[in-house]
């Protein structure tokens, strides 16, 4: 899923500027699951805004609304009837959702309330971790199912570097050394010979370096 992080309240306030009629828009997909932009979080931010502005003696209107998804226009269309009543749409979706809402409501100020951070997994309740960077050319078959691009701080294809210590990355003791994981995994699965192979330089064109990506599947198109 896409994992995000709520922006600081102060930053949100600053971005809102003078806007006091706010449509707070949640998304019932990834950001709900990772506890950053679902209905509950929409409620929490709305409550924060109301508390703050009430305290400041301001007049305001905060409407809470959570869409099934902010990355599909049909859902985004569901707010058509009342979006215009608000100065801004404060989206709690990932960057994709924020942009797609902005695309749909061209005259509206659409602001992000969430920092989109990574594609990841739930490690345990309340904890998520990055797994994929969407490079567009998966090599997980070569690396024991552990992606060195997403999970090595240096994206080394032929790691580990000399900073690997007790299974942890040199950047901090909380971060696993991806190459330690790869080696462990190769060893467990009896594929250590794979380690001896040098992974060739990567063709990054399939990744973001090749420019914004698009995917078309002709047979699915209308």
């Amino acid at each position: 899923m896409i994992v995000g992080n709520r922006k600081d309240f102060s930053e949100i306030l600053e971005k809102l500027g003078a806007a006091r009629r706010v449509l707070l828009l949640g998304c019932n997909e990834c950001v709900t699951v990772c506890g950053v932009g679902g209905e509950r979080e929409v409620g929490v931010l709305a409550s924060e805004l109301r508390l703050y502005w009430t305290k400041e003696g301001e007049t305001f209107e905060v409407r809470e609304h959570t869409l099934e998804r902010q990355c599909d226009y049909e859902y985004i269309d569901q707010i058509r009837g009342f979006a215009d009543d608000y100065d801004v749409i404060l989206s709690m979706a990932c960057g994709a959702g924020v942009q797609y809402v902005a695309e749909a409501y061209k005259t509206k100020l659409v602001l992000p309330a969430v920092n989109t951070t990574f594609l990841g997994v739930t490690i345990e309740q309340g904890m998520w971790s990055e797994r994929c960077q969407g490079c567009g050319a998966c090599i997980l078959d070569m690396t024991g199912g552990i992606c060195p691009i997403a999970r090595c701080a240096k994206s080394l294809l032929n790691g580990p570097c000399g900073g690997s210590s007790e299974g942890k990355c040199e950047i901090d003791k909380e971060t696993d050394c991806a190459w330690q994981l790869i080696v462990d995994r190769l060893k467990e699965s009896g594929q250590m010979e794979r380690y001896e192979e040098i992974l060739p330089v990567k063709d990054w064109r399939t990744g973001r370096d090749g420019g914004p990506r698009r995917r078309v599947r002709e047979d699915l198109k209308l």
Binding site: P160, E166, G167, C177, W179, D184, K187, M192, E196, I198
Partner: peptide, 17 residues
């Protein structure tokens, strides 16, 4: 550095390169 058991293998890769 860790993992210790692949340190020589890793050197091997460098030599091979």
């Amino acid at each position: 550095a860790d993992p210790f058991e692949i340190r020589a293998a890793r050197l091997g890769k460098k030599v091979k390169a």
